[in-house]
């Protein structure tokens, strides 16, 4: 968990990119969220409560991986470094990733995954719907495709939250506990970080805070139908993902995701 950094002496000025570099930085943030969550969902294959769920979580991860590939490719086209999707996925170090803390959290029980997904898919659904109007035509096209996929992800998570919340006493308790575990990671989704703010200003992106009310209203209504309670406060909250400040778990995730590509750079088969 990271707090705000206290600088000794003069704080380095943060440079907000402009033009193509801004589109690149914005796509990188969105791509990293999708990529890292895809990696976590892939961990469920062979570990889900039933084989259909192995396939469902694998499929959802695959959709997110496809979105990440398109977003990272767009980022690499515009950031002036000539990097491709694989360079960005496999050859960046932890501090260069821009994902939020929610998506990197280690896999918990199935209720945890559904709590994370119900929030993240609701967030992505609003985000991509708004991004279909992006002034960057490639980002608008990626969003128009992704929004239809995320509809299915959101629906899947919602069906499970309903079933578990309004299920047995055990499932109800675990679903309720899961809502509380993910709570501290939600505020970060709606922080207006420097890149998103500049991207929104330029018509490329969306101000994260503008998505907050619709996402919360959607999840709150579901939680009520599921006979659960939305926890309303947490003593601490995650910060810093968009600046490259991550949890300890992120290093382990990257080690697993990147080690083959780094052990055999340039390998093809």
């Amino acid at each position: 968990m990271s707090g705000d950094v206290t600088w000794v002496g003069k704080a380095p000025e943060s440079v907000v990119p402009e033009g193509d570099s801004l589109v690149a930085a914005y796509c990188l943030q969105l791509g990293d969220d999708a990529l890292i969550y895809a990696q976590r969902l892939g961990e469920w294959i062979s570990r889900a409560p039933q084989i259909e769920e192995d396939m469902a979580l694998g499929n959802i991860g695959l959709d997110l991986l496809g979105q990440a590939r398109a977003l990272l490719t767009r980022s690499g086209e515009l950031d002036g470094t000539g990097r491709g999707e694989d360079d960005l996925a496999y050859f960046r170090d932890e501090r260069e990733f821009r994902c939020v803390h929610l998506v990197q959290q280690p896999r918990g029980d199935f209720a945890f995954e559904m709590a994370r997904m119900v929030w993240f898919a609701a967030y992505q659904r609003e985000l991509y719907a708004a991004l279909t109007g992006s002034s960057d035509p490639v980002l608008a096209a990626i969003a128009a495709k992704a929004v239809k996929e995320v509809d299915y992800h959101r629906d899947h998570a919602e069906q499970w939250v309903l079933r578990l919340g309004d299920g047995t006493q055990e499932s109800h308790e675990r679903m309720q506990a899961a809502l509380e575990v993910v709570l501290p990671y939600l505020a970060e989704l709606f922080d207006d970080d420097a890149v998103s703010s500049a991207a929104a200003e330029a018509g490329i992106g969306v101000l994260p805070s503008s998505l907050h009310d619709a996402v919360v209203a959607r999840v709150a209504a579901l939680v009520e139908r599921a006979t659960l309670t939305l926890p309303d406060d947490s003593r601490w909250r995650s910060r810093g993902g968009r600046r490259g400040v991550h949890d300890q778990c992120m290093g382990y995730l990257l080690a697993e995701m990147q080690h083959i590509a780094r052990s055999h750079p340039g390998a093809t088969w």
Partner: peptide
């Protein structure tokens, strides 16, 4: 419906 996610992304069971 058994599952909305089948053997490929485009199919349900």
């Amino acid at each position: 419906q058994i599952s909305r996610f089948g053997s490929t992304s485009c199919k349900a069971l």
